[in-house]
């Protein structure tokens, strides 16, 4: 039974994800030793560990989406709080390696309707990507207008490779590996947001670096 097998693997991944979550909390508790070599190794381990946790989370989310269970749980949340929280995460993950800028435009209303957990997962995934490729700075932005909330992660990297831009623009399925998997995931999350017939969108562009943008109706 292929379905049973899939369910079994989903449970397994779920458990691995939780075990890794514990490991990641343990790494968080290692105090700085003062030795740069040692501390940077711990930083790398922390980043890698959280990266794996997030990949597993994505895999589970995509599995659910394929089973038809990916439903956004929409409620009223503050985009300001979301960006502040995600900015803090980015700051911790970056550990001073690059600069993190956070900007919420005046146009952003005090509340918006979205699935906070899914949107946060998508943004954190984009942040992980930028942490790998950014040269010196990453910028997390929120803006609003014409009935859309726009959440953006941009960096000063060399930008997305052409084939990824092309396949996201065309709405084609991405390669289920690395960056591709994360983007497929982000697009699913955007599309799970629907309001008065409009679906959320994922936009990718190169503009002085990679620009990742979720547009939520």
């Amino acid at each position: 039974m292929i379905d049973d097998d899939n369910a079994f693997y989903a449970v397994l991944i779920h458990e691995l994800k939780n075990n890794l979550g514990l490991l990641s909390m343990t790494i968080d508790r290692i105090p700085p030793s003062g030795g740069a070599a040692c501390d940077s190794a711990v930083d790398v381990a922390r980043l890698q560990c959280q990266g794996v946790v997030e990949r597993l989370q994505q895999a589970l989310t995509i599995y659910r989406a394929k089973q038809g269970h990916l439903r956004a749980r929409i409620d009223a949340y503050s985009p300001h709080e979301l960006i502040a929280e995600v900015g803090q995460r980015a700051e911790t993950l970056a550990h001073g390696r690059i600069r993190i800028d956070v900007a919420v435009d005046e146009s952003v209303p005090p509340i918006w309707f979205f699935d906070r957990d899914l949107v946060e997962m998508a943004l954190i995934n984009a942040i992980h990507n930028s942490l790998v490729y950014a040269r010196s700075v990453m910028r997390i932005e929120a803006g609003a207008g014409h009935g859309w909330l726009e959440l953006t992660v941009r960096d000063d990297s060399a930008g997305y490779p052409g084939h990824i831009l092309a396949s996201v623009a065309a709405g084609a399925p991405c390669r289920a590996r690395g960056t591709g998997l994360g983007l497929q995931f982000a697009r699913l999350i955007a599309q799970a947001h629907e309001h008065r017939g409009r679906l959320g969108e994922l936009h990718l562009a190169n503009d002085g670096g990679a620009v990742f943008r979720l547009r939520l109706p």
């Binding site: 939780n18 929280e85 995460r89």
Partner: peptide, 16 residues
């Protein structure tokens, strides 16, 4: 909070 969550997430939610 959905496991695993980060300290920042916990802190941010609690403050809110």
């Amino acid at each position: 909070l959905i496991k695993p969550f980060s300290a920042e997430t916990l802190c941010g939610r609690l403050v809110a």
